[in-house]
Amino acid sequence: MLSRRWSGMVASLLVLSVVLAGCAKRPATTQASAPAPAGAVGSTPSGTGGGAGAAGPVAQSGPGAGTQPSGPAAAPTSRPEPREFTAIPDLKDINFDFDKYDIRPGDAKVLDANAAWLKSNQGYLVLIEGHCDERGTNEYNLALGERRAKAAMNYLVSQGVQASRITIISYGEERPLCSEHSEGCWAKNRRAHFLGKPR
């Protein structure tokens, strides 16, 4: 009765293909041809080697344990600076249905034109931004934006654009084109946006 502890008492089918046509040519690897960087502070430069999945020690987990981090890891070198890319009038946006990342038939034509421009302008690299509308939540929309950019990339690759020329980035819901809370606005914000830069 005089017990002092009361705590005891309280006690998509998304396989649904990303690309409608031309899946067969979809690259098996990630978008960049360079090795994926692993960023981990305090890691020895060699890390554990062996590709993207490994990095050196990141941090001690408890007080006083482990090694002190030495400082920020070097910026990854295989990713071009997004700010170096600029708008190219011939590269048009495509849009997506709510919570979807498959390419709509009408947008495939836009992508065909984007692919044609890229094939005849081999000196250019392309950055594909994936965007969402404000509905949904942060973490999921980052993934959704990634899938949208990847779907657009896969389509371009299927049309013969080299994967090594393409970089993708997801902004989730963070960079809307239009800020009204309406379907018209949301539809514009669900997009893949294309930017270019000379090699």
């Binding site: 990630t30 993207a52 941090a59 997801s170």
Partner: peptide
């Protein structure tokens, strides 16, 4: 510290 900075998200 940088925890993860891979290609992609």
């Amino acid at each position: 510290q940088t925890l993860a900075a891979f290609v992609g998200i």
